[in-house]
Amino acid sequence: MTFFKHGLAAGLFAVAAALSATAPAGAAEPVSVRLKWLPQAQFAGVYVAKAKGFYKDAGLDVTVNPGGPNINVETLVASGADTFGVASGTEGVLYSREKKLPLKAIAMSQQMTPFAYVAYTESGINSVKDFKGKKVATWMVGPQYTLYSVLAAEGVPQADVNIVSQPFSMQPFIDKQFDVATVTLYNELNTLKEQGIDNIKLFMPDDSGVTTQQDAIVTSEKMIAEKPEQVQAFLNATLKGWKYAFEHKDEAVDIVMASGPGLERKHQELMLNEIERLMVAKLGTSEGLGAIDLVSIGKVQDDLIKFGAMKTPVDIKGAFDTSFWAKVPAEDKKM
């Protein structure tokens, strides 16, 4: 750790900083935020907060680093390579804590499970119970546990369902190779709609009582211990960015479009709408954007242990630090 801080990495970061140095930012603290994926409306709040100067006003000079396949946000934040992260979600934070990564979640962006299951209307599948004996595709990089939880909640034995690995492409579902496929509400569902496929039914995990909050905002324990005021400032500005994004969607999409090459505007507009739905759902409205739902997190952990994805439970209060979110001014988080 020390080696990387003071050795190679430090030197290279100096070069990096020199290369990417923005205008002399006065007293603004240089920090970075690592996203879980490429620039898109899923992260509109962050881009808006940067573009509208919310971070700057909060005394932060934020560099937004996109993610990619095989980029692990938790690792990057834990190692100090990035200050903050928009990480995978409940499961990712739990895994990280189990693996002793020194990081905590300080807010949860998406208040309801962003995954949903789709089937064609003519398929005769009318509820999750009808998944029995059907070919159900899901992503095997984590979301499969949500499916397991949903099946368990509906009393469908896992063994009765033919669960197969789903590609990133919706093509096999379009070609009817699967009876049921998994989508994220903000991306694959829109892809289907864009391809003119609307004879589908949606099954939401939350309807079965399975909630897994996603897009955790994380930072390192070191930051929390040493620079809590920066952590607070970052969270305040980010939530403010989200609020602004939902209130000025056209402008928000413009800002996102300017951040990534070759984005399709229509797709980003749809995505922002869905992200809003996910973020203002449940606690998102009653408590405010970014609320942490410790109860649902506890249930997710129990299920992960039951399904063998985790071996030992972690201290949830230690992994999800609600104190910063509690201190975010209401006008920044309440819609």
């Binding site: 396949p69 095989n70 938790e74 995978s88 499961e91 895994y95 693996k99 990089v141 197969v164 690995s165």
Partner: peptide
């Protein structure tokens, strides 16, 4: 569906 590359991908996603 399987293979070393998929193992690497899944393990990365699960911080392993």
């Amino acid at each position: 569906y399987s293979g070393i590359g998929q193992v690497i991908y899944q393990a990365t996603a699960q911080v392993d």
